[in-house]
Write a protein that binds this DNA or RNA. Sequence first.
DNA 1: CTCATATTGTTCGATATAGAACTGTACAGC
DNA 2: GCTGTACAGTTCTATATCGAACAATATGAG
Lengths: 151, 151
Amino acid sequence: MPSAYKGTPEEVLALSTFIKLTRSVNALLGQTNPMLQREFGLTESQLAVLEAVYHLGPLCQGELGQKILRSGSNVTTVVDNLERNGLVRRQRDAHDRRMQIVHLTNQGRTVIAAALPGHVGRITSLISVLSCEEQQELGRICKKLGTARAR
Amino acid sequence: MPSAYKGTPEEVLALSTFIKLTRSVNALLGQTNPMLQREFGLTESQLAVLEAVYHLGPLCQGELGQKILRSGSNVTTVVDNLERNGLVRRQRDAHDRRMQIVHLTNQGRTVIAAALPGHVGRITSLISVLSCEEQQELGRICKKLGTARAR
DNA sequence: CTCATATTGTTCGATATAGAACTGTACAGC
DNA sequence: GCTGTACAGTTCTATATCGAACAATATGAG
């Protein structure tokens, strides 16, 4: 995150924008993640896995990686920890034994159902320093930005 | 990162905005970080430390943590790795022996001077899918968002 | 059917990251 | 000069994260 870089006006604006963008995300996650950890003992990634399976039903690990935008090896680690904590279980697909289907346990369902409303409420509360119009504009710009590719 | 959550319209908008925001940052970092790693063997945090010392001069680790927004224990780790790789050296402050002043080595100065222009150029190139006005609006909104506090 | 290839997940090694407990140093008050 | 408190870093433990190498399984070509 460069800050005192001397470059063209174009670079100065882009860097300034980039820094504000990444800092705002860090600030938001810094408010939501420790809360998740304290109240439910969940990390952001663990929540993401539980939430995906909660809303979409049992998924194999590859699909989970797609949904939460993480590498396969990372999904293995996160699911390992969730399984150790009794929140999910793995089941080999009978038709394709390469696949590990990740299911919620009853305890996992209870935990995610308890954690989600507060988490969503907290995000909503934080984001609502912005007007609806600002949120929509932010969303539009971020979506455009998400398509950027290095030259 | 919830996605299929059923909540109030306010929550739906806030979550949608939040997801677009975090994904855009992930997308940008996913373009810049692997490049840094391949070309210069630097992680994002290592670059941040080198850049801070490059532009601000020798800093103690506490100040570094403030600049790059990381915990003290994390700064210790990152500086450990940079020191092992010969890019920085630690020097105890003579007047307050609690402090570790982090200096660039010649090699570190060479590396950061070589890495920065391309890195900045890459960020600029990515961000420039947005017009100047969009960048300014994004910066303004993110700055506002960065001040949000949980109720 | 057999073999080459592709796919899925795991393992390994490295780095990042945070909080808690700890060590060493400084400093203020007595 | 002691002593208690504050502060700077380190260590420890746990989790996340990636890429590369690997194992197991599936599948298509012949």
